[in-house]
Design a binder for these strands. Structure first.
Lengths: 190, 190
DNA sequence: CGTCTTAGCGGATAGAGAATCCGCTTATGC
DNA sequence: GCATAAGCGGATTCTCTATCCGCTAAGACG
């Protein structure tokens, strides 16, 4: 991207190291403590703060690839011939992405976003969900009374429920699918 | 309760003041910062820490009445002649309680609990939900494939979704009911 | 009512973590 | 090579958490 082209070579390397360390932090469930990350990445504290002024900014950076994937999948779903399948696939991907990537879930839950691109992506995802709902509704697949803006938060809620459920029983492999099925059943006309 | 009887009169007053201030903190969405609460309640820091060793302990204390209400409602639902209505009422109350009381939602989301009584209450709520599910299932009301332990996290997920949705549009009065309807529709056999 | 015991108090202070500032280093364009 | 400014580091400051300990007064008892 344009922004990284403007970075000096060594700065880009430092940035990459920071991101790498931050990923291991997320994977092991630790908070993104910028001072600690700096030490572990072998750079000065200021270097981390220069690239990512707050932990949230770093978190949003880590979540970005997944958000872009989800956006792309959503746009494909909108083009799909079988709209209901498209919607289902979008929701399934959104759920799995949130379970696989703690950063994504955290970013979607936050009321505000540090980074302009993230704001854009969240808005885009919401808009995709709304358009999917509108079109699926127009074809009569959707239960009465459901609003277009309802689906995206509901999906996040199911992801949240799945995290809770998995915390209680980490071995329950089918849990996420059961929860998603409940959501789909709850919004689809039969 | 027995514990409060053993408190000296002035200590009980201080405790009440602390709790009162803490409630205003929650209502205005601030974090429970024990030092600040102490200052505002006009007591020493140590006094707060003596009553509530951690912010979580204080949070759990604040959430307790709501949890006990919910437990009581659940036990009534279990006795109810119309089991499905009982289940529905239990879920509705659980949802509304979480929306009304941020402390409750936070406590239910936490993986661990500071206070033994809270552990007990959470376990009891889970068990009530499981028994409700088991009995409703036995009567053939519930969709195939749903586990007994699924319902409680799903309810919390719906509450989470409702909070997200309300953050986006605080004026949407019917939102929580729509979300709950989606959940009920998603788990009930038709 | 006086006195004794000890539960309970407060706030100074130690400790942990976040974020900034500023003098130095080094990549890069010419 | 040299100039320049982008980038660096980590000491330092600031904020918030939590403990420690000498003191106060509640309330039991005669």
């Amino acid at each position: 991207m344009a922004a990284s082209t403007k970075l000096r070579k060594d700065a880009a390397l430092n940035r990459a190291r920071i991101v790498e360390v931050a990923e291991t932090y997320l994977e092991s469930g630790r908070q993104l403590q910028l001072n600690d990350i700096a030490r572990e990445a072998g750079v000065g504290v200021a270097t981390v703060y220069r690239h990512f002024p707050t932990p949230e900014a770093l978190l949003e950076h880590l979540a970005r690839p997944r958000m872009e994937e989800l956006e792309a999948a959503g746009l494909v779903a909108l083009e799909s011939g079988d709209l209901w399948r498209g919607l289902e696939g979008f929701l399934r991907l959104g759920l799995q992405a949130q379970l696989a990537d703690p950063a994504l879930a955290a970013v979607l839950a936050a009321p505000e976003h540090a980074d302009a691109r993230t704001v854009e992506l969240v808005a885009s995802l919401n808009s995709i969900a709304m358009r999917l709902v509108a079109r699926v509704k127009a074809e009569g697949y959707l239960v009465e009374g459901l609003e277009g803006a309802d689906l995206f938060p509901l999906m996040c809620g199911v992801a949240y429920a799945a995290r809770l459920g998995l915390a209680a029983d980490p071995h329950d492999a089918g849990l996420a699918d059961r929860f998603l099925d409940a959501l789909l059943l709850g919004v689809r006309v039969r």
